[in-house]
């Protein structure tokens, strides 16, 4: 496995690319130094706000404030040995979004599975961005749990391990979901060959 080259690149959202300092701040705040939590708000608010803005544009400000309070209240559940502060914070954000969707009754009809990927809002965003209709359709047809991991990696710039922590699944599962999503998109969008047939082969009507 190659080293994570992302660490040498600057994150577009301005959040720290190395999470070591943030992990320590979060751990310290959990151990009693509550003020150590405050710098995290400055460091990660743009990233977390982006997550909400892409999925629930009208409520992003409210959800951001709520996510921070819940993260602060739950800060003792952070375990640096199980992953980075970044992945953990996105997990909190995902819960806040799920609570919001549940209350609003707008949750996607996936009985028994809590998938925080409100497709309508996301699809409107893709439409507004004039994304190629074929790609948009292919994304819509991805199984929701694969699409969620894909968007966490693509839009939130999480590593598969961070996306796994956010969703609450093993890292290997996140990697394989991403792998399958990539495969489906390639099949569906390959310049040669009729896309329709591939769809029926994979048979995903998420």
């Amino acid at each position: 496995m190659k080293p994570d080259t992302r660490q040498h690149e600057e994150r577009s959202d301005g959040a720290p690319s190395r999470d070591g300092g943030s992990d320590a701040q979060l751990t310290r705040s959990a151990a009693g130094d509550a003020a150590a939590f405050t710098p995290l708000v400055q460091a990660y608010s743009p990233a977390l706000h982006g997550y909400f803005a892409r999925r629930m544009p009208g409520a992003a400000d409210d959800l951001l404030a709520e996510a921070w309070l819940q993260a602060f209240a739950a800060r003792r559940t952070f375990d640096p040995s199980r992953g980075s502060a970044r992945g953990w914070l996105f997990g909190v954000a995902r819960n806040v979004l799920a609570q919001h969707l549940r209350r609003a009754g707008r949750q996607e009809a996936v009985p028994g599975v809590e998938i925080t990927d409100p497709w309508q809002a996301v699809d409107q965003r893709l439409d507004a961005a004039a994304l190629a209709p074929a790609l948009r359709r292919a994304l819509a047809e991805l199984p929701v749990e694969e699409r969620e991991v894909l968007l966490l990696v693509s839009w939130e710039q999480l590593t598969p391990a961070e996306a796994a922590a956010a969703v609450g699944i093993p890292a290997g599962t996140a990697r394989s979901r991403l792998h399958r999503a990539r495969g489906r998109l390639r099949d569906r969008l390959a310049p040669t060959g009729p896309a329709g047939r591939h769809l029926s082969v994979t048979g995903d009507m998420a």
């Binding site: 706000h49 982006g50 803005a53 892409r54 951001l64 994304l131 190629a132 790609l135 839009w155 990539r182």
Partner: peptide
């Protein structure tokens, strides 16, 4: 990780204004 046709377009579609 994001090696599929249209990955860049998808990333671009995720562009949002920074928080106020």
């Amino acid at each position: 990780l994001l090696d599929f046709p249209g990955a860049d377009d998808l990333m671009a579609a995720g562009r949002v204004e920074p928080p106020s």
